[in-house]
Amino acid sequence: MPIEDSVSALVGNVNISLWGKLFLILFIIFYIFFAFMLFKQIQLMTRELATPAAPYLKFLGLINVGVAIALLFIVLGIF
């Protein structure tokens, strides 16, 4: 069987929702990394420049990381 046929057979047999799940898991892992880096950067910047809004921004950064991690568990459960 030509290699193109075997690839298309393999791809055709896999449910589209599995590809969706893989994509979402990869996306959320990337997003968790991004959110964590953003939170670390906010911590660094608030140490460099303390402002009255800094605690709220740190809190938002932390919530962002928390929501991303929660979504990872949700996607693992739902799909």
């Binding site: 979402l24 997003y31 991004f34 959110a35 953003l38 962002n64 979504l71 799909f79």
Partner: peptide
């Protein structure tokens, strides 16, 4: 869930 992901990305 995909919509939630999209808005998470937009928020981020």
């Amino acid at each position: 869930l995909m919509t939630v992901f999209w808005y998470l990305f937009t928020w981020g």
